[in-house]
Amino acid sequence: MLKDSSVLPPLPESAVTIGASAATWRDAVRLAGDALARSGAATPAFADEMIRVIEEFGPYVVIAPGLALAHARPGPETLRNGLAVVTLVEPVAFGHAHNDPVRVVLGLSVTHANSHIEAIADLANIFNDASAIPRLAEARTIDEVLAVMNWDGDTA
């Protein structure tokens, strides 16, 4: 089946930050925003939008043990669909009842609310393998992160 342009492009090196330090969850989300901006998926102001979603709705973005999926609605800050990966040297608490502390922060930029489901299915293919989060958290090189994230679940 042909995939449309809504699918997340392969994760570029520029969207990966490994071994980062963040004192608070806000710092951690901001690092993910920085990585999205660096790769051209969003403007620098997108970090503020992602922080605001958590301020408004709470730490529900911590969707699995050790993993936060920071995101916000499509808007002027979202330039194209893209993902960023930030791994933290010291885990950070987001205030989630079950899944804290967070070691890996993903940032997600999507340009249209209805066009991202297929891209998300790719993300589920990666993380439904329970080893993906520890492998990312322990990655020492960007290539190790890319090997986890650019795995093509369709060939399995």
Binding site: V53, Y60, L69, H71, R73, I117, I120
Partner: peptide
């Protein structure tokens, strides 16, 4: 359901279908 209707609710939808 998620806060923004983007991202986490879509993961939940995809995995609920599975």
């Amino acid at each position: 359901i998620c806060g923004a209707g983007i991202g986490t609710s879509a993961i939940l939808k995809v995995n609920a279908e599975r």
